[in-house]
């Protein structure tokens, strides 16, 4: 019974948050935000690169690129671990 009430409260909280997010969402079709305008206007002075995509990737959203690099690192590490382990097992 206690578990049931726990799940119920979780569901109620989720529904509340989703409905709240629906209310504060921008109406469909409106220009999305001022962020992209800021980047388009100021990327060349602040990052000094002609390719604004590169400026966004490595300057404004550097954390995102760091996460991508971490994902790649984890993938390579996992692949090498598994392949080396299977190779050693075959040899012995």
């Amino acid at each position: 019974m206690r578990q049931f009430f726990g799940w119920l409260s979780l569901v109620v909280l989720m529904v509340f948050l989703v409905i709240g997010a629906l209310f504060i969402m921008r109406p469909f079709g409106e220009p999305p935000s001022v962020m992209d305008d800021y980047i388009i206007d100021n990327a060349q002075e602040e990052a000094a690169s002609n390719n604004v995509v590169a400026a966004v990737l490595f300057d404004y959203r550097g954390f995102d690129t760091l996460g991508e690099a971490t994902v790649l690192f984890a993938a390579v590490t996992g692949a090498l671990l598994v392949l080396r382990a299977s190779h050693k097992k075959e040899e012995t």
């Binding site: 990052a47 000094a48 690169s49 002609n50 590169a54 400026a55 490595f58 300057d59 550097g62 690129t65 690099a69 790649l72 690192f73 993938a75 390579v76 692949a79 090498l80």
Partner: peptide
């Protein structure tokens, strides 16, 4: 030669992707 640290970061990421995919 513009771009500040962006070319150097490109170089680092390029080394990383090249070596990682080749190693796999």
């Amino acid at each position: 030669w513009t771009g500040g640290v962006i070319p150097l970061m490109n170089l680092g990421v390029g080394l990383k992707v090249m070596a990682g995919l080749s190693a796999v």
